[in-house]
């Protein structure tokens, strides 16, 4: 497995005068070669710290980091420097050198790599072409837009032909359209070169559009992990549900709606075409229940489609149970998310 990352029981504690900060608490992850792996979580969850442990910008308090079976945590400084050239990194604030041109920024990591001036020039030019900035080679970072800056940062990170690219909130400072264009670039890069990409983000859009797998972090721990599709379809941990729900929020609607004793709000989920609007009318007839569709969507996540319907059902407890059983038979996941009869 090359380009693969193994994090083995990573712990990172920052000593602090009052009380130590347990930023990462025993995290073990395997990130496969060529995967785009997302790490999400709320602010302070320990995402940045964990990712900085991958290239040892932060040295774990305990635990091992292995890349291509090489144990980074056991390397001497000189060997570590060489390994770091195989791991590119981009940041939220771009971190371009203000006194250097775009060309010089991209050429920066190529110094002392044994390449001739002409080879460096050729390499930088082809990288700038790849990120569609060949006409900006002699511009300074201050003359670029945020999206262009991040493209330069990507070109610079790719200069040493890394097998892994770490992205810490790489699109958080960008508007949605620019974000999309950067995500497309990263996706293309992954498809064309097979580079492994680790993406930290708090934007679910990024995970949905880009990632194959995702880990959800809270208080320094990974609370849920798996294929992006599964996580979106069947989130288990409350934090994950919170993130997934941030797309469309029916809970609010349920809370705000005038209470009819028999009103229940359901969220139905199905993969592909296993259900559609026809199901609703079927249920309505079969169980003599009043069902209205509040909202619905079909999303494409990592290449598969996930349908979601939010409905209001007017039915008593007995009929509701029957409806839920029926849905289960149809392999439609139903969740009661509010209304007079909900669990609370």
């Amino acid at each position: 497995m090359s380009g693969g990352i193994i994090l083995d029981h990573i712990v990172k504690t920052f000593p602090d005068r009052d009380s130590p900060v347990h930023a990462v608490q025993d995290v073990s992850l395997r990130i496969g070669e060529g995967e785009i792996y997302g790490i999400v979580g709320f602010s302070g969850a320990g995402k940045s710290t964990l990712v900085r442990c991958i290239n040892l910008l932060e040295r774990p308090t305990s635990g091992r980091v292995l890349i291509d079976k090489v144990e980074l945590t056991a390397l001497r400084p000189q060997a570590l420097k060489a390994e770091r050239r195989k791991i590119g990194m981009i940041f939220q604030q771009f971190n371009l050198f203000a006194t250097r041109t775009v060309f010089e920024n991209v050429a920066f990591p190529l110094k002392h790599t044994g390449l001739s001036k002409a080879q460096i020039a050729q390499k930088v030019t082809s990288l700038l072409k790849y990120v569609e900035l060949e006409n900006k080679a002699s511009a300074y970072p201050s003359q670029l837009s945020g999206g262009q800056k991040q493209r330069v940062a990507i070109a610079r990170a790719l200069a040493t032909d890394p097998k892994i690219l770490l992205c810490d909130e790489a699109t958080s400072a960008l508007d949605p359209i620019t974000t999309s264009s950067i995500l497309k670039l990263l996706k293309k890069l992954n498809q064309e070169t097979g580079i492994t990409i680790v993406v930290i983000t708090h934007q679910m859009q990024v995970v949905k559009e880009l990632c194959h797998k995702v880990a959800v972090m809270e208080h320094g721990k990974v609370v849920e992990e798996g294929d992006v599709f599964d996580i979106f379809a069947w989130p288990k941990h409350p934090v994950t549900r919170n993130f997934v729900a941030s797309a469309g929020n029916v809970e609010e609607e349920a809370a705000a709606a005038p209470a009819d004793l028999n009103d229940r709000y359901l969220r139905l989920k199905y993969i592909g075409d296993s259900a559609n609007d026809a199901v609703i009318s079927q249920i309505s007839r079969r169980f003599d229940a009043d069902i209205s569709i509040l909202s619905g969507s079909i999303e494409t996540i990592d290449g598969k489609s996930l349908g979601q319907l939010n409905v209001r059902v007017n039915a008593d407890a007995g009929r509701l149970t029957a409806i839920l059983d029926y849905l289960k038979d149809l392999r439609i996941e139903a969740e009661v998310i509010g209304g007079a009869g909900s669990a609370d």
Binding site: A82, R84, R85, I87, F91, N95, F97, F108, P109, T160
Partner: peptide, 22 residues
């Protein structure tokens, strides 16, 4: 900016390189 130092470190630049080039 500490971020620049960080970026250079991540690129495998050594201490002397960071002092002079960053």
């Amino acid at each position: 900016d500490a971020g620049l130092v960080e970026a250079a470190k991540a690129m495998g630049v050594g201490h002397l390189g960071i002092i002079i080039r960053v």
